[in-house]
């Protein structure tokens, strides 16, 4: 059986990846929107995004809209692949325990 991805396995990171993976290939989510969707705090979310970015699963872009800094997080192709494998493994676990 395939191994679970340790980086994605953490609950908040799983949520982040699930949200980003639901978007079309090149679209990303703003930090504030991601915060609302996952229900995480600023610091917590920032730290986990950094972990994901270090693994190459997401790319982070910072821009200024007017005077406000805006951070957009997008899933990379590697991140999407890893997420798909992780979900497949979860499904295998459920199916495997039945038989």
């Amino acid at each position: 059986m395939a191994e679970l991805d340790d980086i994605i396995h953490q609950p908040l990171r799983l949520k982040i990846m699930a949200a980003l993976n639901a978007l079309p290939a090149t679209a990303g989510l703003e930090f504030s929107r991601l915060k609302k969707l996952t229900g995480a705090t600023d610091g917590n979310l920032g730290a986990h995004i950094e972990t994901l970015a270090k693994a190459g699963y997401v790319s982070v872009e910072k821009a200024f809209v007017g005077k406000k800094p805006q951070t957009t997080v997008t899933a990379t192709a590697a991140g999407r692949g890893a997420f798909a494998r992780h979900v497949a493994t979860l499904q295998e676990i459920i199916a495997g325990k039945q038989g």
Binding site: P11, K15, A19, A22, L37, L90
Partner: peptide, 14 residues
Amino acid sequence: SAALADIDDIVQRV
């Protein structure tokens, strides 16, 4: 199953 349910939930919200 719980993890998959979490994923479904967040996709729905997105």
